[in-house]
Computed example of a mutant assay.
Amino acid sequence: MSDLIERGGIPEGFKVEVFGGRVIMTPQSPERHWTVRDVESAVSAAGIARERVFGDVLITFPGENDAAPDLTIIGFDAERRKNSYSCIDVLAVVEVPSEPEDEKDYVRNVRKYGRFGVDFYMIADPFKQTVTLMSEPHASGYGRVIEIPYGQPVGFTLATGERVKIDTGTFPTRAADGR
């Protein structure tokens, strides 16, 4: 996957990930883009430098499928490895599902991000119109899971002491049938 990314082999507007030996190419929706932009704005307002925040950049997970989350926040001393970072440098991840009840975001990523100690995993779901914020990572997922309806603020404090507060009132919604 990293070779494909480095060669620029991913069509614009698509996200490509490998799960269970299968390559999954997903077209990105306007809702995903707008939601990620809103979260990036909140992260910037929290004073977190742009060099520590990115989307669709490869994160490596030893012995597991790598991932390219919709938005990733890394620590101060994160070490860039060509065009990727290690999961040990990740403080928080945000994903926006591309389909209702997306198994990748709600099952596989919960297990993986929790197992590898990602402190905060946030799913902003335009279909459910809720944000699921997970914390207290452990070997099979997260010990604390909170669902917040769109329109309510979401906040968390990173291990670095930085406090991120997100206004979800501007998050776009989408009908379960994809419209």
Rank of each mutant, 00 (worst) to 15 (best):
V131I: 13
F19T: 06
G178V: 01
V164F: 10
G117D: 11
G155I: 14
Y142L: 03
D77H: 12
D119R: 10
F76Q: 12
L58W: 08
G155V: 11
D102Y: 08
I166A: 11
E6V: 13
F54Y: 13
G8V: 03
G55K: 08
T160R: 00
E147L: 03
V53L: 07
V145H: 09
E147P: 07
R37L: 14
A175I: 01
P62K: 05
V53Q: 12
E6K: 15
I48M: 07
R115Q: 11
A67D: 06
D38S: 12
G47W: 06
G151K: 12
E40F: 05
P153H: 13
T168Y: 03
G9Q: 09
T72G: 04
Q129E: 12
T170C: 00
F171L: 03
S41I: 06
D66L: 00
E136D: 09
E17M: 12
F76G: 11
T168N: 08
F116L: 10
P97L: 01
W34I: 10
P149M: 08
G114A: 02
C87M: 10
M134Y: 10
D102Q: 13
L58M: 12
S86D: 12
A46C: 01
C87T: 09
A124K: 02
V43W: 05
T160Y: 02
N83A: 15
R22Q: 14
E31C: 11
G141Q: 01
A42C: 02
I74E: 13
E51V: 13
I148R: 05
T157F: 05
E99W: 03
G155Q: 14
V145E: 09
A46I: 00
V164D: 00
S44H: 14
G13C: 11
A124Y: 09
F116C: 04
E103V: 15
E31L: 04
I59Q: 07
R108W: 13
V43H: 02
A159W: 00
A139L: 04
V36R: 05
A46E: 04
V131R: 04
D77V: 14
D3T: 14
R144C: 12
F76E: 14
D38E: 13
D125F: 08
A176V: 12
C87N: 09
Q152S: 15
R7F: 10
S98T: 02
M1V: 07
I59N: 08
V110W: 05
I88P: 01
I123R: 06
M134K: 10
E101M: 14
V131F: 09
P100W: 13
G143L: 04
V107Q: 09
S86E: 08
F76A: 15
Y142W: 02
I73D: 06
F156C: 08
N109V: 06
P11N: 04
R174F: 03
D38P: 01
K165H: 15
P149L: 08
I146V: 14
T160H: 01
G9I: 00
T72R: 01
I88C: 06
T168G: 10
I146Y: 07
V39H: 05
E12W: 02
D177T: 04
K104A: 11
G155A: 15
E51P: 15
K15R: 14
T60K: 15
Y150M: 03
D77K: 13
S84P: 05
A42I: 05
A42F: 01
H138T: 03
K82Q: 06
E99T: 15
L91V: 14
G21N: 02
T168I: 10
E162W: 02
I24T: 00
G20N: 06
P27E: 15
T26K: 02
V53R: 09
